[in-house]
Design a protein around this nucleic acid. Structure first.
Length: 1108
DNA sequence: GAGCACTGC
């Protein structure tokens, strides 16, 4: 180039460029070394130099030799030190042997100025195009009208169909009109992210960081944010903290027509807030369906209707002929679907592009049709068949966005995930089966049900609309027009179909009063609300008056199901937080185990070491722990580790996020001690190391964001022919294939980058390490905690299971008989561990969900020792006189062989449970943990309790039988009530000091004595012929000198108060052995036959009944 | 022997 170049200056050398980088692209410069723009500059530079050379040879072609400062550049690249260097090197250029001279620096500066000018001009062109597009949107005509309406009315409804631009434009109109602090809710996270990005781009960052998004684990919100896109659930959480929603001036609720649970609830909450916040502006945005409902709900709010902008779509009704309609429990007939593919091949030349989207109801249906279509596709070589549903791996789901090679169409066979959640461009044909699977809730059996239904007209239109996004389309409906007309107009709102437990709990904690009188937009059935209230009472979240208890208000703060929330609370109480955090997180995300991998024997073998025959939550725990270990050892290698086992790594990342959120919440509610200060986190060197790593990670993340995600690949014709796990696709293949794989392995895994930025790996490892190898004692305790959380979700193995085939094992829950284990559970492949091998080892299954599809299935099961667990978790335990017969929750009957053992077990359970309850209440009542001394003391008590639970109860071997009561048996279970006035002479022992909540009053319904809130003594109509005198047996107390005949109750009472000498001093609550006793077990009984009042014991009553 | 889809300070 210049003649002075002899000095070894080479523009192409990396070294020379690096030297210029140090001058122009430093950390605080407009463009930084390493950024995308920096890369672009150097490629621009090359082109620019070539152009200059060419121009030197030819004539002047517009590029000035020197850059003219009148250009639009508003960034200075001529900082003082650059000027200085220019000056210096001009003088001393001859002395310098290497490095850029003044010529090089000014060359580079010229190029940089041209580059900036060029990119700015480019963005002006972009801007002009953008503004044109904005003005072309249907909603643009209504811009002033919308602003005017919002200024004058507290609530406005904007209704517009797909493509009218309401989601992106309305918030911008409001911003330009001077509104700020705008919240715009979306039902889905992705929508929040992409809308924030889009609006920020459209306003050319005119609002800078003033447009942001916030979702559960991610936010770009700053104090400067004026417009925030957030999820509906998140806004609800914010209202829970900030009742008046003072942080916002405007709330936009988008997609209200989708009628999600959160959305319906949010509308209700906002409606009740309007009177207290007259200044708040509320805008509902909806598709043009059912608008009147929303307007009426807000006392006739004005509606602005905007036409949509879709391309025309031709609708063809092709009802399935009767002979091809599948009868019940039969596979779908693929012929109607194949005919559509054939028809398209005949009618449309392959060079006319356009893909096909086929809606079916479920995964099984998709597989059936996929198989048939694949045969056709292989034969014609004109189609690539791709399944799409949420249980596919994310990598496989992503394939639907890839491009088919010329002359080939994609045929995407999808569930209704493609109706709203996933939008695929380039779809020209839609095939609609008209079916959908929907979840409903059966409150009687406490069971979820997944059933197939006809879709609604609204869904039908939504599916059709997917064909007209990028051009005119065709929609084939595989039902008759008359069917369409008979469809319900809208889908059933979610609030009508699901269990309302969490919703009611939220309402209570938000102080919204009686849920039955709350004005919902479309109130759920009263029975559904009542069921939820009852359930919450049973769980102790609400008291008998329906008011929130302390545990209830805590559970309301935890963003999990009530069942999971209870586990978390118990886990922190028993210092088993780490494993419980993992289990709670695992049960709150989609299963990390991919179904498609289940058939692959290699995956099965690789997964085997992770399996725990204690139950599915333990398998999940093992998996998470193993992954954390791998992650620490070989970082990026975890991806491969997951793939080999058919595990979706994304789910494990989600678990880490959840774990941390749960931990923070437990800590902020005083259930966990706060983390020690960071000083323990190693030496300075380590911290510096981590800091440099974080810098690198941030750069990787920025690069990824600037690249705008991944580029679309072109699909191969044989794509989708086999799943990713079949035919050993995991084994390394020689040649090109292997190279591809290695390359992709080196690609930046953006999820891992984000994960590393958010979490401190060594901290996680340390925390998890605690739970890595649970002692059998801890495992027993953990099971108990999980079970108490899951209660009353318990199932009893059928007594004949050991004679049945593996696949025909039957179980019974209290409300539903004949349920089976889901094939994905560890117990489906290993049912022998549930069989009764000896009479001291009966087991129950605690389960997370009971879902009926073809059959009622139990998922996520844990096996627990029956008697011991029941005594500790059951809501009601009823006994006969010598406690050898127990009835639990009115449906399980246990008969113990040895009265001695029976009594000991019951007595131990009562004591431990009382202690447990006391600790729990102390923990909950005591928001901030006391001083170290108190903590130490409570830790001791706790250790004793844990020890007691495990050693004295869970490990105890007691011989007993276990069966479920038949319907007729439950009818005459109890002795029955006696009028209280006639019982006054019975001296009830004072057990209050012994067991908190102890009443020891005659039970007015069951009869017998109600000893604690869950235990009623001697209320069973026992078949054994026992007189009260026989109940007294000689007994010697192991702790003191007492030796005398006592009734069982007296014994329990004594045992509860008489502790070993060491313990006695710790227990300062002066309690004395009951002076009075329940010796008089007889009471007044009115016999209807004799019409006489008799004073009899319970067994005498029974005898009397038989004879009279 | 087999499960729609979302979501949570």
């Amino acid at each position: 180039m210049s003649k002075s170049m002899a000095r070894s200056w080479d523009w192409d050398s990396l070294d020379c460029r690096a030297q210029l980088d140090e001058i122009f692209f430093r950390q605080h410069d407009y463009i930084q070394a390493g950024s995308l723009e920096h890369k672009e500059f150097w490629s621009f530079f090359d082109r620019f130099q070539r152009f200059k050379t060419k121009k030197d040879m030819s004539a002047h072609l517009g590029v000035p030799q020197e850059y003219d400062a009148r250009y639009r550049i508003n960034v200075s690249v001529c900082t003082r030190d650059v000027e200085e260097r220019l000056g210096k090197s001009e003088h001393k250029s001859t002395r310098r042997s290497s490095g850029p001279g003044s010529q090089e620096i000014s060359d580079c500066r010229l190029a940089l100025l041209h580059f900036l000018d060029f990119s700015q001009r480019q963005s002006f062109a972009k801007l002009a195009k953008l503004r044109r597009e904005q003005k072309n949107l249907p909603i643009f005509q209504y811009r002033d009208r919308i602003v005017e309406l919002v200024r004058h009315y507290p609530v406005v409804v904007v209704a517009g169909d797909t493509g009218c631009g309401k989601s992106t434009q309305v918030p911008q109109y409001l911003l330009s009109a001077g509104f700020s602090h705008i919240a715009c809710t979306q039902p889905r996270r992705i929508a929040c992210i992409s809308l924030a990005k889009r609006v920020s781009y459209e306003s050319l960052n005119q609002f800078g960081s003033k447009v942001g998004h916030q979702i559960r684990f991610e936010t770009t919100r700053t104090t400067a944010t004026k417009l925030l896109f957030l999820t509906e659930g998140l806004l609800l959480r914010q209202i829970q903290q900030d009742r008046m929603l003072a942080q916002y001036q405007v709330a936009i609720v988008d997609e209200v027509h989708e009628r999600h649970l959160h959305c319906d609830f949010l509308l209700g909450v906002l409606r009740s807030l309007m009177s207290e916040r007259p200044d708040l502006r509320l805008i509902l945005m909806s598709a043009t369906i059912n608008i009147k409902l929303f307007s009426d709900y807000f006392s006739g709010a004005p509606v602005l209707q905007v036409p949509g902008r879709l391309f025309p779509i031709q609708v063809i009704y092709q009802p399935i002929p009767p002979e091809e309609q599948p009868s019940r429990s039969e596979k779908l007939d693929p012929r109607p679907y194949l005919r559509v593919l054939q028809g398209i091949d005949q009618r449309y030349p392959p060079e006319e592009r356009g893909d096909l989207l086929l809606f079916l109801s479920g995964v099984a249906e998709i597989s059936t049709i996929q198989e048939a279509c694949q045969i056709y596709a292989t034969h014609t070589r004109r189609w690539i068949i791709l399944p799409l549903h949420s249980t596919l791996s994310l990598a496989q789901q992503d394939k639907v966005f890839d491009i088919a090679p010329p002359g080939v169409r994609k045929c995407i066979i999808s569930t209704n995930i493609a109706e709203t959640s996933v939008t695929i461009d380039g779809v020209r044909f839609v095939v609609d089966s008209g079916k959908v699977k929907e979840m409903s809730f059966d409150p009687k059996a406490k069971m979820q049900r997944l059933q197939e239904f006809w879709i609604s007209r609204a869904s039908s239109e939504q599916r059709k609309g997917r064909a007209g996004r990028t051009g005119p389309g065709v929609c084939y409906r595989l039902y008759a027009e008359s069917d369409y007309n008979a469809f319900a107009p809208y889908p059933v709102p979610e609030i009508h179909r699901v269990a309302l437990d969490s919703l009611i709990l939220q309402m209570k904690s938000m102080g919204l009063g009686d849920p039955l009188s709350f004005v919902f937009i479309d109130p759920p059935p009263a029975a559904s609300i009542q069921t939820a209230v009852m359930y919450l009472k049973e769980q102790g979240a609400l008291d008998s008056h329906g008011e929130l208890t302390s545990i209830g208000s805590l559970l309301a703060q935890l963003p999990v199901d009530v069942v999971i929330g209870k586990m978390l609370v118990l886990g922190s109480l028993f210092k088993l937080v780490e494993p419980v955090l993992t289990v709670a997180a695992a049960l709150s995300v989609q299963s990390p185990f991919l179904r498609s991998a289940q058939h692959n024997p290699d995956c099965g073998t690789a997964r085997q070491p992770l399996h725990s025959n204690q139950g599915d939550p333990f398998t999940l725990l093992n998996t998470f722990n193993a992954w954390v270990e791998i992650k620490g050892e070989r970082g990026g290698g975890s991806r491969k580790w997951c793939r080999r086992r058919g595990i979706e790594e994304q789910r494990l990342y989600e678990m880490v996020n959840l774990r941390r959120q749960f931990k923070d919440l437990l800590r902020s509610h005083g259930l966990l001690e706060s983390e020690y200060s960071d000083s323990s986190d190693g030496d300075r060197g380590k911290r510096r190391e981590r800091l440099t790593e974080r810098k690198k990670l941030h750069q990787l993340k920025r690069d990824h964001e600037q690249q705008g995600g991944t580029r679309r690949k072109v699909l191969k014709l044989d794509e989708g022919q086999d799943g990713e796990f079949s035919s050993g696709s995991d084994t390394e293949k020689p040649g090109r294939h292997k190279k591809d794989k290695e390359e992709s392995e080196q690609n930046v895994d953006i999820q891992e980058v984000k994960f590393k930025l958010r979490h401190n790996m060594s901290e996680l490892q340390e925390a998890v390490g605690v739970s890595q190898d649970l002692s059998s004692r801890q495992q027993a305790l953990l099971k108990l905690l999980l079970c108490r959380g899951l209660y009353p979700q318990l199932a009893l193995p059928d007594e004949h299971n050991s004679t049945r085939k593996d696949s025909e094992q039957v179980f019974h829950t209290r409300n539903k008989q004949g349920v089976v284990i889901h094939p994905t559970s560890v117990f489906a492949s290993d049912p022998e561990v549930l069989h009764v091998r000896d009479s001291s080892r009966h087991q129950l299954l605690a389960f997370v969900t009971l879902l009926e599809t073809n059959k009622p299935y139990l998922t996520n099961c844990v096996r627990v020792p029956a008697l011991q667990t029941l005594l500790l978790v059951a809501n009601s335990v009823d006994s006969n006189a010598d406690c050898t017969r127990l009835v639990v929750d009115g449906w399980l009957e246990l008969e113990l062989r040895e009265p001695e053992e029976a009594l000991r077990a019951l007595s131990t359970a009562l004591t431990l449970r009382a202690e447990w309850e006391r600790l729990l209440m102390a923990q909950l009542g005591n928001k901030t943990l006391g001083g170290a001394a108190e903590q130490g003391a409570s830790r001791k008590v706790l250790e004793k309790l844990s020890e007691g639970l495990v050693r004295s109860l869970l490990y105890t071997e007691i011989s007993y039988s276990l069966r479920r009561l038949a319907a007729f048996q439950t009818q005459n279970l109890y002795i029955g009530p006696q009028p209280e006035s006639e019982l006054s002479h019975i001296q009830a022992p004072d057990l209050k000091a012994l067991y908190p909540g102890a009443e020891a009053k005659p039970d007015p319904i069951k009869g017998g004595l109600r000893v604690t809130s869950f235990f009623t003594y001697n209320c069973l109509a026992d078949s054994k012929d026992l007189y009260s005198e026989c109940l007294r047996t000689f007994w010697s107390c192991p702790n003191c000198d007492l030796y005398m005949p006592l009734t069982p109750l007296e014994r329990m009472q004594h045992e509860g108060s008489c502790r070993p000498a060491g313990e006695q001093q710790a227990e300062q609550e002066g309690k004395k052995a009951g002076s009075s006793s329940a010796s008089s077990l007889s009471r007044v009984y009115h016999c209807d036959v004799c019409n006489e009042d008799l004073t009899l014991t319970s067994t005498e009553i029974l005898k009397h009944k038989r004879h009279s």
